[in-house]
Nucleic acid binder design. Structure first.
Lengths: 335, 335
DNA sequence: CTGTTAGCGCATTCAA
DNA sequence: TTGAATGCGCTAACAG
């Protein structure tokens, strides 16, 4: 046991034990080619197993083209969506016998560059980033530098990406509220630099138009994904002279903030104001007033992203979201 | 710009530019020794900066003893506590010009071993783990194998660790509720394999004893950290013939589950039942009914852990928690 | 299919 | 203090 962790056997040891040359051992142990079934191959694998041989990635990557490692950039890991997303990426990597490195950027362009540099200096084979900002040209820089990358959750419309259909998601949320009889729906929007937010907004507008809802510009507020941002924006909306009877928030966290803002004003959810969130994080269904939300398949998006990055697939993947109604949205109260 | 990401300059390039040998450049750029102030040193650093030289960690670690990388093992990243903890670890590593690798284990002993192997095979200099289980001897194996490691948030009582004083935290939570006049407090406990949970329990018991609260064994329920676990356990407690007037949950998530269980039974928080959580995640203060919670300094714990691991400090660090009262806990209603 | 040779980028001998 | 030489563990190019 005490040997189990100590710097393991090297290729040389394996080669000796199997009575072959080092390069033969190397070749026979290379998982990239179809694993051979010859007697020698069996012997080498047996020797490797016996000695507990594990390839030294550092040394290996020195000669190989790639490192079998991908880099993942997210705004923050304290956000459940990003945490789950990264876990799914890591899971997919594990399946493919790769590893993943994460770095957080705080959604700050400067920190993004630093973090990407740091990842790249570790020679990752490619980057998955959920940090695309329409007001920053970092993604364009990656493209022109020829760095393999794929966007996830957010897109810049050019680089390959794996996203949910945010326009549809926004549309579904509004349709759901309209179906419940709401005519005046407030939008707790997200940052304009994120495509996810602008697409949700576009979908919401389409839904409002189609369903003949009020489209006052004063019904649109907010520019963040956080609980605080949601609370602040919802507070303003609910303080309007003609307040909305329902709110659509662009994340579950900002929806929780919206619930809080409502509660602070003595309004019940859904009695006085219906609320719909986005992402359907696990917490949503377990809240005291369970949260209606637009579900996004983070696992599919993560798998799609890895596939786009490594399997040289073209274009982008867009996965459809689903509206999950729960307690927080209800039929409008007859006045 | 398009060169910025391409495989950067090597030591050889720097050496040429500075008109010195490769080995001189290597030595002068070695951050482990006091940075020299000679003219040559300046020239080498300037050349390095000009070329955007970044040490190749893979190659470097082939010769150096260490890799300047530490491995972090957490149960899951979708949990806000772990997400924040890892971010703090990563921040501290950045300060020290190290990097960190994370892996999740799902709190499963088998996956823990696999993940640790995977990290170790990447030759990390040491391990930070928040996954200690009293019913598993993996930590003991690490010790006997001589793998540098430090425990965080949970401890096994032997290996060096950075934790909060969970016993005190449990005590403070109960004292807080007792001070509000509650005599019958239900405990939404955590898994018995986690020292954090057993210590909180011990502290809670001490508080109950000291404050003369009811100590029925039926007031203790639950064995998980999740929202679901909290909801389930709180549901049982609140269904008791003589239900508690307050609940102390061992995590904020299980406290939210407890709030949900209360709501499902038509009970108001804090009107009918007061609730206190643990960890004070950012969400706690922003809930519709803001959650009273025991605050833990994840940043200090993270820094302490890295310090213990790398600065060869001895023993363990225990940081004191703080009780943060909010809306979810209130004076008991006069009957 | 096999073994020999060369070298990835770097840090460390050692001799100057 | 410097530079030449050596090799970390591994893979790729080559010849057998």
């Amino acid at each position: 046991m005490s040997q189990e962790f100590t710097r393991g056997a090297t290729l040389k040891d394996v080669a000796e034990k199997a009575a072959v040359s080092i390069s033969t051992a190397s070749r026979l142990l290379d998982d990239r080619h179809a694993s051979k079934t010859t007697e020698t191959a069996r012997r080498v694998r047996e020797a490797a197993a016996l000695l507990g041989y594990r390839r030294d990635y550092a040394a290996s990557s020195l000669r190989r083209t790639g490192t079998s490692t991908i880099g993942v950039l997210v705004p923050r890991l304290s956000d459940a969506v990003m945490g789950i997303f990264y876990e799914e990426i890591a899971r997919e990597c594990e399946r493919r016998d790769l590893s993943a490195l994460v770095a957080t950027t705080g959604d700050d362009p400067h920190r993004l560059r630093l973090a990407a540099q740091s990842l790249l200096s570790r020679k990752v084979d490619g980057l998955v980033l959920t940090t695309a900002r329409t007001d920053d040209d970092f993604i364009a820089e990656l493209r022109s530098a020829g760095v393999p990358h794929v966007l996830a959750l957010r897109t810049d419309g050019i680089s390959p990406s794996a996203t949910t259909d945010d326009e549809l998601g926004g549309y579904l949320a509004i349709r759901h509220l309209a179906d419940l009889g709401h005519r005046r729906v407030g939008i707790v929007a997200g940052p304009t630099y994120a495509s996810s937010a602008t697409m949700r907004l576009a979908g919401a507008r389409r839904g409002m138009l189609e369903s003949g809802l009020d489209i006052d510009e004063e019904l649109f507020a907010g520019n963040g994904f956080s609980v605080e941002a949601g609370e602040e924006a919802a507070g303003r909306l609910l303080g309007l002279p003609r307040p909305p009877t329902a709110l659509f928030a662009f994340t579950d966290h900002s929806a929780i903030g919206a619930m809080t803002a409502a509660a602070r004003r003595g309004l019940n959810t859904p009695g006085d104001v219906s609320i719909v969130g986005y992402n359907d994080i696990p917490l949503a269904r377990h809240l005291p007033t369970s949260l209606s939300s637009v579900r996004v398949s983070l696992d599919l998006i993560a798998q799609g992203a890895v596939r786009l990055l490594l399997d040289a697939e073209e274009g982008s993947r867009v996965f459809p979201p689903t509206m999950i109604p729960r307690q927080s949205s209800a039929r409008i109260r007859p006045v």
